[in-house]
Design a protein around this nucleic acid. Structure first.
Lengths: 221, 221
DNA sequence: CTGAACCTTAATAGAACCTTAAAATATAAA
DNA sequence: TTTATATTTTAAGGTTCTATTAAGGTTCAG
């Protein structure tokens, strides 16, 4: 997933970007409202996150401009808690969600994912996660080919990447429900996928959560 | 879209319902606050529209009750008193929007649509307490991973957080009822959890109440 | 001061997980 | 069809992590 983030508080922005990238969300950031507007026109983002209070051009201005130009990219507004009215204003201007500052980054991630999970993106041919580009059509992950099972496993992990998937779920999903009990299938293919991620030198890793399952994470420095 | 509308002014209600239904919004209406509350509990509405001034039970009361019961359905408040204070009151109680009477029905429709566009808040998967953000789905507490037992212990403390849980209860809950007597299990894991809370620099602590049990508390400077 | 309740830490054992390679199977090429 | 190649399945042994155990320390009430 790729987002645009317009925020003038550098310190906050740094922290947020750090956490988002770890979740495999690639972030383009600017602190300038006008530049933000220009960038927002490009149809390359899965979501735009706008701070309301910006020098020169407010988040609302940006929102209004892009909606006037019929740009449908989902927008999440950020605003200080005191400005309760902003919520209403933002939603009326066509924002898709609203988050009061201060917010937990996990909350932002949840909402980003909720927005990007909407139908349109579901059958996308190319899925991004961190520095990965997975092409569903010809089963390539960056420059590597995946086998069928590897690809299915990756796709499983890629849908709702913030949610860990357990072995049983993966087994059912890929090998079918009759095939119960052989967790080793999953382990073997997790191992294969890891090997390919390593070969790609990707920041993305498969994290094991003992007794629970697996999820994708993207290392940040 | 399906909404619940609680309004005692029959004449107004008729007019509003007429226009909403014409816009494809199906409306369930009641003029009774208590019945409104009962209906509001059902998780079948995309939005609830509450008039503030109602006989017996005010819109604020309904709002407060349903939010206390963790019902997340979006709520729009309607009030003749266009004073800023009511607005703040409503929004603080967990209303999602506010509309002063008299209002244009088109305005109400716009706001209903804005709200239903917004993704539902993640519920139950994430539990907040103080500055903590516990994700049950992948067993993370803020940026730290928890082990299975740590997670179960935290979940136990997190349910009804102001009620202290004794060791026996925790033991039964996590280790099973046969496993009586080994309070040390609990002590060890309380210790582990405390260590992680410290690592997180959290304001939240586990308080020991001698001969009674443990509870979570959040330090306020 | 004393004992009970509670806390902390380190060591251990076993479950869960990982990796690898060989065997079986499917797929493609000749 | 036969051969070659790629992928999946099976199996075995190795590694890591967590729950448990145990021992000794600390705090608190009487």
């Amino acid at each position: 997933m790729r987002i645009l983030y317009v925020e003038d508080e550098k310190f906050l922005a740094d922290a947020v970007i750090h956490v988002l990238e770890k979740s495999g969300i690639s972030v383009e950031w600017t602190d300038d409202g006008e530049e933000g507007l220009n960038l927002a026109m490009k149809p390359i983002y899965d979501c735009i996150v706008l701070d309301v209070m910006l020098p020169k051009m407010s988040g609302f201005d940006i929102l209004r401009h892009i909606r006037e130009r019929e740009i449908k990219t989902p927008v999440i507004m950020l605003s200080a808690l005191s400005q309760a009215e902003d919520k209403i204003k933002g939603l009326n201007y066509g924002a898709d969600d609203y988050l009061a500052k201060p917010f937990k980054t996990a909350e932002l991630i949840a909402r980003l994912q909720a927005l990007s999970r909407r139908p349109a993106l579901q059958d996308e041919k190319v899925i991004r996660f961190g520095d990965l580009y997975y092409n569903k059509e010809n089963r390539t992950l960056n420059e590597l080919d995946l086998t069928e099972k590897e690809a299915l496993l990756l796709e499983t992990l890629l849908q709702e990447p913030d949610r860990a998937k357990n072995k049983e779920y993966i087994l059912n999903h890929i090998w079918g429900s009759d095939n119960y009990g052989d967790d080793n299938y999953v382990e073997v293919y997790i191992s294969y996928l890891r090997k390919k991620l390593k070969k790609l030198n990707s920041k993305v890793q498969i994290k094991t959560i003992r007794n629970l399952g697996y999820k994708l994470v993207s290392k940040v420095e």
